[in-house]
Design a protein around this nucleic acid. Structure first.
Lengths: 273, 273
DNA sequence: TCAAAAGTGTTGGGAGTACACCCATGA
DNA sequence: TCATGGGTGTACTCCCAACACTTTTGA
């Protein structure tokens, strides 16, 4: 192989190389409310991911994250990702960050594809456009047992599940590496992308303000807390939670009532300059 | 542009696309000792980065991170990075992790190149091979002022410096994005890669055991503390530091003396569970 | 003898945990 | 009236910052 650009260019012959393509794949994450029978209870929150149903050959009837090929002559990866995001949500101002570049050599049997994955967070209520083949899946269950994480997703009509092996990487490394355990429903390595994405959000929620990208302008502290709880996958104590987020939110004089219990003040996000 | 693989493949014509290439660029980081005059004092530690001098046209006499082109038909990005690492250090068991994928569209004026960058941590004392054109640069100064980070590097003969603008990304985002402020010495966008890499290490040192990849088998707690201090760029208090790392290290019965002050026990890394 | 680093004990404050409690609502 | 969530006060624990202090060495 060529080590320097000089060498590379000197020997550059397009036909000698197998063609290389890149895609961006985006995990668009939001939070949805599950309606509940008891008039007193608050609605249960769940994380949801936007998936697209494929109808082309090797992946017929599988679901995958929205994605698109990079056009190397006109756009950057981020621009490519934004283009996909616009196509799927019709919005341009969504929070988005690069997640990881995945490139298992056989991830697509037809082409050598390197995929740069992104995470996007959005308030589902902002979306109005129905996109062909796209559907929101709620994460109705996450179980972790002996390093195997099992996810169950549902879009109301169809239930899919898959499991991923989560291992600490060898030799005083840091985080986890993921490996498919069982996956019949998602195309490519998108099971891994989703797990890595959820892990990232789980970490970041503690030291950043990213949650507010999934909230509307006004929200109750109970709502906010339930979003935290579903992302962290654990119950939080009310007083503790309120103290922690106290300086990130601003109380308004609006209230929300009519819910079978004491009404609550609405808050809004307070940017800490 | 094509949105799905199906569309893409149907229209696939290699000549229509500008060729896309990928490289891996690796920030190989280590810690070096600066000899000191006073026989009592311990040697000052500094972070060092391995840079390669270029002698090809557009970058003649500029320095850059070691890197290499991906061969799409035979290797993954990680394998490509390991190949580069082996070439530069002659070692195969170095700690390495993916950093970020950079792809400014004009980062290389001759080709559309997407670069996937990696960080590698190594104990400099393990290296014996001299590599042509490669040289270790010590970070002799880091200054941050009004969002501009200025780095000064020296390899003993040559001093280079550059500065990078560090901004919080818009709209309740999380971390920083970097942008070149002034850079006459490094090729491509490697100033950004270095800053992003240092930032990553600085964060990770607190919640992982990555430091030990830069340490020899046996070390004193003073040495270890000084490595933390140079990475975090601040002084730590001895008792606090010892408590924090207490369960990560194991005391041995070896000692190091002959240094003009009380000798110290040597410790080794203790893998947790 | 003494400067420098090795190494340890003690105290105080701030953050998170846990629990107890009261308030307001609509069916 | 009462189940339910909204909302607040307080006591306790644990971690870490800060400081004080002793020990050991080579020139």
């Amino acid at each position: 192989m060529y080590s320097t650009e000089e060498e590379f260019l000197k020997n550059y012959n397009p036909d000698e190389f197998e063609k290389l393509s890149m895609t961006t794949d985006i995990m668009i994450l939001s939070v949805s409310d599950q309606e509940v029978s008891n008039y007193r209870k608050t609605s249960k929150k769940m994380m949801s991911i936007l998936l697209v149903k494929r109808d082309d050959f090797p992946y017929k009837n599988k679901w995958c994250l929205p994605g698109g090929f990079l056009n190397p002559s006109t756009e950057t990866l981020e621009e490519c990702a934004r283009r996909v995001l616009k196509r799927e949500t019709n919005l341009s101002d969504i929070y988005m960050e690069q997640l990881y570049t995945f490139d298992r050599i056989d991830r697509d049997p037809r082409l050598r594809v390197v995929s740069c994955s992104y995470i996007a967070l959005v308030d589902k209520k902002r979306l109005n456009q129905e996109v062909k083949n796209a559907s929101w899946f709620d994460i109705i269950d996450i179980k972790e047992d002996k390093g195997i994480v099992r996810l169950t997703l549902s879009n109301g009509k169809e239930i899919i599940d898959f499991s991923v092996k989560k291992t600490l990487r060898k030799n005083s490394s840091d985080r986890y590496s993921f490996e498919t355990d069982k996956n019949d429903s998602l195309a490519f390595d998108h099971d891994i992308v989703i797990l890595a994405g959820l892990e990232r959000i789980k970490n970041k929620i503690n030291y950043t303000d990213i949650v507010f990208n999934m909230m509307g302008k006004y929200f109750t502290l109970g709502d906010l807390q339930r979003v935290y709880e579903v992302i962290l996958n654990k119950k939080l104590l009310d007083p503790a939670f309120r103290r922690i987020i106290a300086d990130k939110v601003e109380k308004t004089d609006k209230m929300r009532g009519g819910e079978g219990h004491r009404p609550s003040y609405l808050y809004k996000y307070k940017k800490s300059e």
